[in-house]
Nucleic acid binder design. Structure first.
Length: 126
RNA sequence: CAAGUAGACCGGGUGACCGCUCCUUCGCAGGAGGGAGAGGAAAGUCCGAACUCCACCGGGCAGGAUGCUGGGUAACACCCAGGAGGGGUGACCCUACGGAAAGUGCAACAGAAACAUACCGUCCCGACUGUUGUCGGGAUAAGGGUGAAAUGGCGAGGUAAGAGCUCACCGCGGUCCCGGUGACGGGACCGGCAGGGCAAACCCCAUCCGGAGCAAGACCAAAUAGAGGGACAUAAGGACGCCCGGCCUGUCCCCGGGUUGGUCGCAUGAUUCUUCCAGUAAUGGAAGAACAAGAUAGAUGGUCACCGUCCCGACUUUGUCGGGAUACAGAAUUCGGCUUACAGGUCUGCUUGGCUC
RNA sequence: UGGGGAUUCGUCUAGCGGUAGGACAGCAGACUCUGGAUCUGCAUGGCCAGGUUCGAAUCCUGGAUCCCCAG
């Protein structure tokens, strides 16, 4: 994931929050907005209430890894907001929650079912 | 063996695949190969510095910091060694540890009194009374009681009763001598107790301190609109505040407009390791070797396999199998410290107690 | 990066070395046929750890949490 794939400016986040859709679970909130370009951009919003610097940085790395591996449709600005309840979870719980939100928002590419997402072992061995 | 005490250290390991950041080699380019990639606290931001800017220099006030002595250091509120006081059977530990015979203040309640004071008492004399006291005058600080604290302690002499009133020992103060760089220690003589606590109350004394901070600051590129308004030439400003002297300068405030890109600063440094020398030590010196993260919303992540440590359960023990756990915590200009957090573990010195030889 | 402030009962607050007070809320009683209102009484507290002092919410040191300001 390269630098141009990050959402950096506050205006970018404001546009996603203002115009995009919203899907939420107990641990994560997904905001997404189609801007019609070929490149997708990602942002991760993790409050200081979630935990200390180690916890927040780890969650951000996990989400970045999940986004790298996920079969996403192109051309979206996607923002993940982490809720404080997600702090004690492990990588696979976060991945399961994130993929569930992505499938609910229909951001995954056609031909892949949510069951395929849960079946992560096949992905790792390939 | 158990308990304790002081110090030093580790902070899971190996391999494979997919990713991230930087450096480097090759290539016109897409890209390919190679190398490096979090800590003992990176943390809190509590001190001290380096570095950079604020044209500049000096003096005073205010303010702040430190506070036994000697040493180390670029510097420090840090470190080492020592002294004194306190705690512990001991190894050892703790200490904001200058000044209360400069001044101002504070001490609730209790108590007679918390600065000069006699409540209960003790003793002497006189009067009245009549054998027990009352009243008046005086002496006294030994005893009681209050309190956190009561005007040196204890013993003997002494006395009407007492009292450093006198004496011995201890404490305190002073002078001299000796040892030590010094804090201080030891000894002799003298004084004869002269009120005590609090300075993390104000304060006094000694020493030190200009301010801001890498978003410091320098450069490149791009973009835009300064004939804007106000204050002041006996002025204003000169980077916390006030005053003074020199020196410098068209200076300050308000309103409006542009940029939110890149490069440097920025990784060779009070650096790290080894050996030797000086020093009780902190530390310093010399020689040799090494180069060891550098992001910019912020790189160190994911998966798999095997092993290590600890805990739990099952099986008949050595052991095997299954499950779980593996801390605190993430570099952001850089160093020296301090403080705080930390699963589990290793090593060394010493002390006390028990057992055995 | 630099600076400032706060923490006292369940909640909001006062007290600047000497028994921690008030309001609302809570509980009990009185009043009432019952409830409300009113009256009386009760219980409940110093963010944490050390230190100075005879004595600390107050003074000092270290830490924790929260809030605010400037660039």
């Amino acid at each position: 994931m390269r630098g141009e794939q990050y959402l950096t400016k506050p205006q970018h986040f404001a546009r996603v929050y203002g115009k995009g859709g919203s899907w939420a679970s107990r641990y994560l909130v997904l905001r997404a907005f189609s801007k019609g370009l070929s490149l997708s951009r990602f942002g991760f919003s993790i409050s200081r209430k979630v935990g200390n610097a180690v916890v927040r940085n780890r969650l951000k790395r996990w989400l970045r890894e999940i986004m790298r591996a996920a079969p996403l449709k192109a051309g979206y600005d996607i923002v993940f907001i982490v809720r404080p309840a997600a702090a004690p979870l492990g990588y696979w719980d976060i991945r399961k929650g994130a993929m569930e939100l992505l499938s609910r928002s229909r951001l995954l590419r056609a031909g892949r079912q949510p069951e395929a997402v849960v079946n992560v072992e096949a992905d790792g061995e390939g």
